[in-house]
Amino acid sequence: MSNTGNANEESKKECLIISWKDLTCGALVRDLKRIKENKTGTWRSLKPIWNKEKCVNCYRCWMFCPDGAVIIENDRVVGINYDYCKGCGICAKECPKKVQAIIMEREEK
């Protein structure tokens, strides 16, 4: 493909887009490192607060989180990754009623 960018060249670049000539064909992102740099958590208006004492490690929040923002370490939930959590509240909704280890709070900006 001419003039529409080379995937290998593109993946070497750390910087933001310079020219349309540097782009991959079809707005494709092969370099997932760049996706990680795009911290979508800034969109959040509500913030999930996770309570370690109440959590029973059922993983429902982890399974349902659309952004993979529930952090698991050594088979246990250890917190929320606020860099990517968009504050949708699914984790709080899915947390069993008897447990209520996650509550949503208004995000302070």
Partner: peptide, 17 residues
Amino acid sequence: TLGPACLPDSFFEHKRA
């Protein structure tokens, strides 16, 4: 990642390509 959001900082370049 396919079909990412490209906001005012990059959408234009994708259309040019």
